[in-house]
């Protein structure tokens, strides 16, 4: 693809999702957009970029084409209980303390900031349900947000193939919280009722979302430049009470990015608000 076309797509992606694409990712733009060009009966990426620029009126809904491009360029694949460690840490280290501190309010709010196709929020909901009688009369709510509308549609539907549920989901939880309808496993309504989904770009305002005791933001900040990461982390910190917990991917860090959070010693990927900055 031409450098001009690449720049156009990279600029669009940056503006819409904050994701930065360097020149060495030209192949990725081509490999993701070529199938899309085909799907829209366009000869090649040049044709697709022209259509994105609004150069071809016969494509119909321009906005839906732009959404398709955004979806194609953002990967949505996730697992249930992806990387077990953070879930174990929530169960053993985070929840006992939070429950103690919230015992009068009896309420916990959790935000999955890159909910994708729903496996993470459903995993958290299962974890809370399994935690025991202690939480029985609590208000437990989970908000799942993602930039991709397509991914959220799948999350809301809560239907997973055999292969998807085989990955990471223990059999006893599968049978307890999902039921099989023909070839698909469907999340039970009780679990679904704990979660609300909302399309949200991490570059937009979070203020209307309210405060969250735990924020999961795993494996998404890697796509942003340092300054954007810093701003997102600062805005996330404003949506948390002073004792709120941030969970990042195990390979991610706030070191040299943000002073708003401090690593919780001994808990890789877990951060607390830096009291000096709140």
């Amino acid at each position: 693809m031409s450098p001009e076309d690449f720049s156009f797509v990279a600029d669009f992606l940056k503006k819409k999702s904050g994701i930065s694409l360097t020149d060495d990712k030209t192949y990725l733009v081509e490999s993701r957009l070529l199938p899309l060009a085909r799907q829209h009966d366009l000869d090649d990426i040049t044709g697709l970029v022209a259509a994105m620029k609004g150069g071809r009126g016969s494509l119909g809904d321009h906005e839906s084409l732009m959404d398709d491009v955004l979806d194609a360029m953002t990967t949505n694949e996730t697992f249930f209980f992806r990387d077990n460690k953070p879930f174990d840490a929530i169960r053993k280290d985070i929840l006992p303390q939070l429950i103690e501190r919230r015992k009068s309010a009896k309420s916990l709010r959790i935000w999955c900031a890159a909910a994708s196709t729903g496996q993470e929020p459903y995993s958290i909901a299962m974890l809370l349900k399994e935690y025991g009688a202690q939480l029985n009369d609590w208000r437990l709510s989970i908000l799942g947000t993602d930039v991709s509308g397509e991914a959220l549609k799948r999350a809301e539907a809560g239907n997973y193939s055999q292969f998807e549920v085989q990955r990471g989901l223990p059999a006893q939880l599968l049978i307890k919280y999902l039921h099989k309808e023909e070839k698909y496993w469907m999340i039970n309504s009780e679990l679904k009722s704990m979660i609300r989904y909302k399309k949200l770009n991490l570059l937009s305002s979070f203020e209307s979302l309210g405060k969250f005791d735990i924020v999961f933001c795993r494996n998404v900040l890697i796509y942003f430049e340092v300054e954007t990461k810093r701003q997102i982390l600062e805005r996330i910190s404003r949506q948390m009470p002073p004792d709120g917990i941030l969970v990042l991917g195990s390979a991610e860090t706030v070191l040299n990015v943000s002073d708003h959070f401090q690593l919780i010693p001994g808990l890789s990927g877990f951060y607390k608000i830096n009291p000096a900055m709140s």
Partner: peptide, 14 residues
């Protein structure tokens, strides 16, 4: 990446 996308398609649809 095209193999990756084929894999994604394989996993997400029956």
């Amino acid at each position: 990446d095209l193999i990756e996308q084929f894999h994604e398609a394989y996993m997400s649809t029956d």
